[in-house]
Design a protein around this nucleic acid. Structure first.
Lengths: 191, 191
DNA sequence: TGTACATCAGTGAACGCGCGTTCACTGATGTAC
DNA sequence: TGTACATCAGTGAACGCGCGTTCACTGATGTAC
């Protein structure tokens, strides 16, 4: 005698994870209140604790889901150089810079994650390895492990450059940071 | 008929700027309350507004002072390759990773700065250019302007790698991120 | 086929707390006499 | 030299507000009969 079908609550949870990811990446972790996160999903604050144990629990789940999705998108890239070049140019594009809510969770949240609960950092660590593994398989399908160090460093470069481009107020400087970053990232990834 | 000598209030202001910088870099901007920032300087919350117009005003001043100090430290580096190598190894050291309060303001605060008031972002933009200029003069004293793009990208790499090393929970992975980052950063800066 | 009802996802008010900011005040200072 | 006093850096209580979390409740659902 169950009310609603079994999938209903799971669907709501997924909706919260999705809208919360956008809000968190746009306004930051400390900058996003539970009431706002729930309103974004079309719900009220009270329902939050039927889906997550705490705000930290939500953040950890968002971080895990976001990095997993990013790894899958990288794994689905066309083989070889063209796929990598597309990814790098998209990452350091003006569009990505200007829409953090729809973008890379690392660029938006990395230094807040460093200061977060171990559960969040744990989720990030696992997710980061998935992303780097996916990228390494694109860079060197024959021997991904050998590409991992370069890939990790290239990813650090992409994250740092996007953050710099977002922080700076001079639009010309911001654009230069992006284009300079693309050149170097491509050199590193397509040796 | 003035009370205290003229330097007294300025000295207090400098003390607040210095202790606040540490606290902000350690706990984040949203994570540091005005009462805590003042207690760190040995004062109570009420005195804050005798020195700064708002918390935003303090943050903008801290950001400007921190980047200026960083630029000066880079300008004082020994000439040529050895100086750069020392700087890069110090930046991506375990010590720097483990003491964000005493470290690089960009690595600690960059994505919070992106979401901050324009006054803070303005201060950051100006400061960033000083830092990059100082580094570029070390990389190519004859033609610093030509080195600027590489230097900016290398700085992005250093920031991103330090943030990754701080976020990750696996100590071995964290150490690898640092050493891999050093190799690539040195390649970029000592071409 | 029509209806009573158990379920439980979601509501919204309330909790204590810390936030940024304001303001009436205190009391050490060092000059004026 | 000794003292009265104007100055103003700093105090600490109070402001309204939004935070994360709790909880008594509501009401649409779809099965049981």
């Amino acid at each position: 005698v169950a009310r609603y079908d079994a999938a209903h609550k799971q669907a709501t949870r997924q909706r919260i994870l999705h809208t919360a990811a956008q809000r968190l990446k746009q306004d930051g972790i400390d900058g996003s209140g539970v009431a706002t996160l729930m309103a974004d999903a079309g719900l009220t604050n009270g329902a939050f604790y039927a889906h997550f144990a705490s705000k930290t629990d939500l953040v950890a789940n968002v971080v895990a889901a976001q990095l997993e999705a990013q790894a899958e998108r990288l794994a689905a890239l066309p083989e070889g150089r063209p796929g990598l070049e597309t990814a790098v140019r998209a990452y350091l594009s003006a569009e990505h810079r200007d829409t953090p809510g729809d973008g890379c969770p690392s660029a938006a949240l990395l230094d807040e994650i460093s200061r977060s609960d171990p559960a969040v950092r744990e989720a990030y660590s696992t997710g980061l390895q998935s992303v780097v593994d996916a990228l390494a398989r694109r860079v060197d399908p024959a021997d991904p492990a050998s590409a991992a160090p370069t890939v990790m460093t290239a990813f650090a470069l992409l994250i740092g450059a996007l953050q710099l481009a977002r922080a700076v107020t001079d639009p010309a400087l911001s654009d230069r940071i992006l284009t300079d970053g693309i050149d170097t990232a491509l050199q590193l990834l397509t040796r």
